[in-house]
Design a protein around this nucleic acid. Sequence first.
DNA 1: GTTGAAACACCCTCAAT
DNA 2: ATTGAGGGTGTTTCAAC
Lengths: 158, 158
Amino acid sequence: MIEMGIKIDNIDRKILDLLQRDAALSQRGIAEKVGLSQNALWRRLKRLEEGGVLRGARMAIDGRALGLDLTVFVMVRTRNHSMEWAEGFRTHVARIPQVVEMHRIGGDWDYMLKIVTRGMGGYDAVYRRLTTGFELDTVTGFFSMETMLDDRPLDVSG
Amino acid sequence: MIEMGIKIDNIDRKILDLLQRDAALSQRGIAEKVGLSQNALWRRLKRLEEGGVLRGARMAIDGRALGLDLTVFVMVRTRNHSMEWAEGFRTHVARIPQVVEMHRIGGDWDYMLKIVTRGMGGYDAVYRRLTTGFELDTVTGFFSMETMLDDRPLDVSG
DNA sequence: GTTGAAACACCCTCAAT
DNA sequence: ATTGAGGGTGTTTCAAC
């Protein structure tokens, strides 16, 4: 079965762009910006939601207020490349709440994890938890010294 | 002047955790979950907002619905390490909308960029735009073959 | 696609405790 | 901290065009 997805026109793109930047916008406000009535906008939002394009509103928070001052990108090389092992590794990593992102990648490494935690002590704890119970070939961390751009909206232009 | 930040207690942490996962929760619903009256919750939200801890609601969208099917982590090594150059580079990169994240990092590389775009053609366009007008020493891309965890809430426990 | 309206939920701000 | 209440805003769903 082919994943079809719903049709998205330029007004939808504009709506998605606005909502990515501020999910608290009122329907009236969005409707005015895109040149629709509030009623017509409501029907589009319902359609986008039912089509799975809208995936819920998230509140962005300042991690530093919680002491989350360290971001590390961890590269992992493994020996076992079976799908079963990968799924087990995913489950293992998913239990570590400081991991905010995980990718299976190509190139010199097999996995890449984004970690957000409290200083080096927090990172050390994550590192130990990550490497306990799983045979990882190599683990290297790239430490973010400065977040220059963060959490930008996806490019909706098409 | 020292950045002080506001005090965050365990109820605040619980509130932040809930809002990170669903910014559309009603104040009544949150208040009930954390054991406060709606009125008391409102005061806490106002305080968290004025303290800069809450940074606005964003709608999460399904990039694939827009054809955004390729995520690449680009590592960049440069020759010039002055702060002026870095700021110019940041401005240059910020103009490329497919860059959703940019970090100055330590280790083998100087910068790391997260790119979300439409297939290899889209990546090629981003790559050319990135490397035009700026002398970069080395540029390498790690291609995400599978996003195993994405956009998880920050760990509020403390 | 549009306007208008009714019913409802939620938010914000009081006052009182 | 709590409850209760009033006014205002926003959403959802109609009917009619």
